[in-house]
């Protein structure tokens, strides 16, 4: 692993005003993320994990502290279109077919038609929805919709994939299946992934490192290295090492 971090988060705090009362959503968070790393932000609701992700994505400005991505501000990185974001809900445009939804960012970047088609074809194959490319989002199941959302995020060939609880609305079976799909895609594309979740098992299964955040005020309370070998398989979910890590992370909450 390279030693100069790709993303450097330094003393980031976020305070917002709720009905005249100051609420600290994030307090003094510092973190370094390496290139190509799969990192999870884990915690209960109200711990500021989504806030942190949104600050990195330039969807929110921190009250204090800095975020640097390869020496640049989040805004510059956004304008260079190096972020691929997957939201909690798939956020597909209802009036566009699956194919056109994946194509949307490419149209905005004015990439030429042939290249657009090549990329979309490859992505459709990657998510296994070639047969549904001319369906509208309303005609797909929730899991399929979220796969389209991931493909759309990958379409601009971003350097960093930001995922905000992308599978939290799905059932356990679909979620585990998509976890595996995501790892397969990640291995192929080798992006840096920042993954927000409130499922301990999901974060252990996916990540290189799990950042545990605690609420009131939101802060980084532990960073746990996940040294399970890659590629990760379904069977690993049953291994003692997996359970040990889950327990370790769960215990890091107990002290809160």
């Amino acid at each position: 692993m390279n030693n100069t971090p790709e993303i450097t988060i330094k003393n980031v705090s976020m305070v917002y005003n709720d009905k005249g009362r100051d609420v600290t959503a994030l307090s003094n968070v510092s973190l370094e993320i390496q290139k190509g790393e799969f990192i999870s932000l884990l915690g209960p609701s109200g711990c500021g994990k989504t806030t942190l992700l949104r600050i990195i994505a330039d969807l929110l400005q921190p009250t204090s502290g800095t975020v640097e991505v390869c020496g640049k501000s989040p805004r510059e990185v956004r304008l260079e279109k190096k972020y691929g974001i997957v939201f909690q809900s798939p956020v597909l445009y209802d009036w566009r077919t699956v194919r056109k939804n994946i194509c949307l960012p490419l149209e905005l970047m004015k990439i030429d038609k042939a290249e657009q088609n090549n990329r979309v074809d490859a992505l459709l194959e990657m998510i296994g929805l070639e047969k549904f490319q001319n369906h509208y989002p309303n005609q797909l199941s929730g899991g399929m919709q979220q796969r389209v959302g991931i493909a759309r995020a990958l379409a601009i060939q971003p350097e960093i994939l930001l995922m905000d609880e992308p599978f939290s609305a799905l059932d356990e079976f679909t979620r585990e299946k998509l976890n595996e799909d995501l790892l397969r895609i990640w291995r192929k594309t080798n992006k840096t992934v920042i993954f927000v979740t409130h499922s301990i098992a999901e974060s252990v299964f996916l990540s290189d490192r799990v950042c545990v955040l605690s609420p009131h005020p939101g802060r980084l309370s532990a960073v746990v290295d996940i040294d399970l070998p890659r590629p990760r398989t379904k069977e690993m979910r049953e291994s003692p090492e997996f359970f040990n890590l889950v327990t370790k992370i769960r215990n890091s909450f107990e002290g809160v």
Binding site: L59, L79, K81, F87, V91, Y93, W95, L104, L108
Partner: peptide
């Protein structure tokens, strides 16, 4: 929905594109 607009924002889309590709069809 705000998320639909945020998506456009994350692509740094121009106001014109936001209207043509999102606001008007919606």
């Amino acid at each position: 929905e705000p998320e639909k607009r945020e998506l456009m924002y994350s692509y740094a889309a121009k106001k014109r594109s936001v209207y043509i590709k999102l606001m008007l069809p919606f």
